[in-house]
Design a protein around this nucleic acid. Structure first.
Length: 461
RNA sequence: GGUGGGUUGGCCGAGAGGCGAGGCAACGGACUGCAAAUCCGUGUACACGGGUUCAAAUCCCGUACCCACCUCCA
């Protein structure tokens, strides 16, 4: 069986053939660290984390690079508004983002390069483009350098657009551009409005990198001039990815073999960045459901499908996941093989919805046939691990000192003994009163043939 | 204007010519002291209008509505 992926560049699902057998190089556009991450922001990371885990699970040696953009117009503007240094804002937001990733069990990438750490590499690349006649320094003395789209005949190939069909940007200041579609590789320092700390020396004068050049430079540095997969959100197809590819190919590299794009999570039919309110920030959402449940919600939908976010759907997803969790936790430590149906689903362009359906089917079988349950639980756990959803993964245990939990467990043992005694005496009012009181305190009690079991209610963590 | 995508049952969400993915919710039953959990059962959904076909949610034509991107939004 072979992994097949939908490639934006060709517009079809095709077999994944890595440049080097057994290896996979992936570059994913991370975020511009300019504000707190909301659930839409982290979808991309979760989706590509699944891709990465799947490749690793099927024997690939994966090099996974996800950048962060830590210098851009918005960061400068916001930091100025907030009266603090831009690098402080970027760093703060990066830490928020790291926390959100950790809360969702997104594996750290092989490396996470930041734009500001790769200015020399970008300058080198820009000089190469200038020497090849694909870029030019603006003649208006601004210090800007632009990519010359007319010099690159295949410009537009990634998004299947003809250059003359594109709307010329009406809002963009033409400055020293030869063509309005030319885009900035380097932006000259505006000494009257921008801090000097946000500029670096370059052959064209002090300035800072344009947006797209960082990814070309960093992908090239860590993955080579040709690599397997480039990923990001759909909105990045144009202009960002189109420009990246144009730059990198104009400089002489083959760049990415496959382009993968994840769809949006919207709210009220709108992209989340337009929505107001903090309720969709990852830490806020995690007050309602656990990270593993939020991750399940994302994984249960296909990465190329739009998801209309709603708390109702999120709660449903949490309920569905708890069903899986209750089953698998009865058989700790058992890990089995991946069922063929699961492998087939994942190989089909990461068909996580079908893969999740396989999980549910085995859970139902396991619940119905106690004799086969342990084996099935092992298979379920193996599948969950691939999706980053194994409840036993230590990644989910983060936070808490453990002291409180130990104390709680001891206290609960006492309470449960009391209730067991009441039940043995058929003192139902007392037994029910204890159960009701615990429920009100956020603890569920269930009676099973093997005795009572308690658990913290969903969302309380 | 160009490019890409969407419209599926109460809800979420797959599928892409032929036996109703899966989950949540609901209802009935089993189990339980009562619950919970679990199991069993119950649903004829594919925006609209035509067409092709033995057979269409799936293919074709047309219509409507929605969304994204078109130079620094994941």
């Amino acid at each position: 069986m072979t992994l097949r992926l939908y490639d934006t560049a060709t517009g079809e699902v095709r077999d994944f053939v890595p440049l080097a057998a057994g290896k996979a190089g992936i570059y994913v556009c991370g975020l511009t660290v300019q504000s707190e991450p909301h659930v839409g922001h982290v979808r991309s990371a979760v989706n590509f984390d699944v891709l990465r885990r799947w490749l690793a699970a099927t024997g690939s040696d994966v090099t996974f690079i996800r950048n962060i953009t830590d210098i851009d117009d918005k960061i400068l503007t916001k930091a100025a508004d907030q009266g603090r240094p831009w690098y402080n804002l970027a760093y703060d937001m990066k830490r928020e983002l790291d926390r959100a990733y950790a809360d969702l069990n997104v594996l750290p990438p092989t490396y996470e390069p930041a734009a500001t750490g790769h200015v020399p590499e970008m300058i080198e690349l820009i000089e190469l483009l200038i020497s090849k006649g694909h870029a030019y320094a603006a003649e208006d003395g601004s210090g800007d350098v632009y990519f010359d789209v007319r010099s690159w005949p295949s410009y537009g190939e990634l998004t299947h657009q003809g250059i003359d069909d594109m709307e010329a940007a009406t809002d963009a200041d033409p400055r020293g551009k030869r063509d309005p579609r030319d885009f900035a590789l380097w932006k000259g320092w505006k000494s009257d409005s921008e801090p000097r700390t946000a500029s670096w020396p370059a052959p064209w004068g002090r300035g800072r990198p344009g947006w797209h050049i960082e990814c070309s430079a960093m992908a090239g540095k860590y993955l080579g001039e040709a690599f397997d997969i480039h990923g990001g959100g759909v909105d990045l197809r144009f202009p960002h990815h189109e420009n990246e590819q144009a730059q990198s190919r104009a400089a002489g590299g083959a760049f990415a073999s496959y382009w993968l794009h994840n769809a949006w999570i919207t709210t009220s039919g709108e992209k989340m960045s337009k929505s107001l309110g903090n309720s969709l920030l990852v830490p806020e959402v995690l007050k309602r459901v656990r990270g593993i449940e939020l991750r399940y919600y994302m994984v249960a939908a296909h990465y190329r499908s739009h998801v209309e976010f709603s708390f109702e759907a999120l709660d449903d997803a949490a309920s569905a996941f708890q069903r899986i969790e209750r089953f698998v936790e009865q058989y700790p430590g058992v890990v089995g093989e991946l069922p063929d149906a699961f492998v087939a689903a994942m190989d089909d362009d990461l068909g996580t919805p079908a893969a999740v359906a396989v999980i549910h089917t085995l859970v139902r079988e396991g619940n119905a046939q106690p004799g086969a349950a342990a084996k099935l639980a092992g298979q379920v756990r193996a599948m969950l691990a691939v999706l980053g959803l194994d409840p036993a993964d230590p990644a989910w245990a983060a936070g808490g000192s453990g002291k409180a939990e130990t104390a709680l467990a001891a206290a609960m043992e006492l309470v449960m003994q009391q209730r067991a005694k009441a039940r043995a005496d058929k003192d139902w009012p007392t037994a029910d009163a204890i159960r009701d009181a615990l429920a009100a305190a956020g603890i569920d009690v269930e009676d099973t043939p093997d005795g009572a079991r308690w658990s913290i209610q969903n969302g309380s963590v």
